[in-house]
């Protein structure tokens, strides 16, 4: 409930002056243009024991996501729908800014943004995860772990989670004599829509796509848009202690939509 450790991190105001001067020239401190992503690398099927897995890299930000399936009871108000649980943990392995202990608000916020994007789109055909309506459905557990934090965890986590779903194989389950039998045979995760997450940081009057850690720390505020491939918006989250004008939000939305195409291209390598 207190201010986040991101914003408490001290960073010299001189760096902000330097960044702003550089942005005025149309260039970021790492040489990127204002609307460019860092280089993106996506590996999938990296954990054979998981039903799906991926490692996403945005520059030196690295996030691993794994998908596990668990036979679960459906929610009473959705007896024929599968269950999705997204969890994220920012562990001290990934950054000196992360502390050990139970999940804090950043961990929870990260997981809930990814969850909302996937659920709203919807990325998954939850009806196809039903095995015995009212008693047994597949629960999909997506666990997200940053390995190296250099800014913009949301977009990397979203990419890793989506890649884990797209490349995932879940066991086939059938009902025999009123009992659920899980077969050796595996099938694709019933993906309905691909979703991606694009984060824009506001530094002074500038809007930056895919903020690095330093940009994130110097930013007034950030906003994440989640998109379907049709360009619809399926989640938004403003983060940070600053504000956006309405004009800036609409500009950020447009920038994010353009940038989302690049992420869909990255995802299209998964067949």
């Amino acid at each position: 409930m207190a201010e986040s450790r991101f914003s408490v991190k001290v960073i010299p105001t001189l760096r902000k002056d330097l960044l702003l001067a550089s942005l005025k020239r149309g260039e970021r401190l790492d040489g990127r243009g204002l609307h460019d992503y860092r280089s993106i690398k996506l590996q999938y099927n990296i954990v054979s024991k998981a039903e799906g897995s991926a490692l996403a890299q945005l520059g030196s930000t690295k996030v691993v996501a794994g998908l596990k399936t668990v036979l679960s009871a459906p929610f009473p108000d959705a007896p024929d729908q599968g269950v999705l649980i997204v969890n994220a943990e920012l562990t001290p392995l990934a950054s000196p800014l992360f502390e050990p202990g139970p999940p804090g608000e950043e961990d929870i916020e990260l997981a809930r943004i990814v969850d909302r994007g996937i659920r709203s789109a919807p990325a998954i055909d939850f009806g196809k995860l039903s095995i015995m309506p009212g008693s047994k459905v597949w629960g999909l557990f997506i666990d997200i772990y940053p390995l190296d934090y250099d800014g913009n965890l949301v977009d990397a986590a979203g990419l890793a989670a989506m890649a884990a779903l797209l490349s995932g194989k879940i066991p086939k389950a059938v009902v025999e004599d009123n009992k659920v039998v899980v077969l050796e045979e595996k099938e694709n995760v019933p993906v309905l829509n691909k979703v991606v997450f694009v984060t824009i940081a506001k530094v002074g009057e500038y809007l930056l796509v895919d903020p690095s850690l330093e940009e994130e720390l110097l930013a007034d505020a950030r906003i994440t848009f989640s998109f379907t491939e049709r360009g619809e918006i399926c989640a938004i989250q403003k983060m940070g202690a600053g504000s956006f004008s309405v004009k800036e939000i609409l500009e950020a939305q447009e920038l994010a939509e353009k940038a989302s195409k690049h992420l869909f291209q990255v995802l299209s390598q998964i067949v």
Binding site: R116, R119, S120, A121, I223, T228, G231, E232, I233, C234, A235, I236, Q237, K238, S243, F244, S245, V246, I249, L250, Q253, E257
Partner: peptide, 24 residues
């Protein structure tokens, strides 16, 4: 009075032009 947005969240599916209308 300043017209600045300090919280914005969304779930569900919105068309791009709906964001502008919602903000208005």
């Amino acid at each position: 009075q300043l017209g600045e947005v300090t919280l914005l969240q969304a779930d569900g599916v919105f068309k791009p032009e709906e964001i502008k209308r919602a903000l208005e």
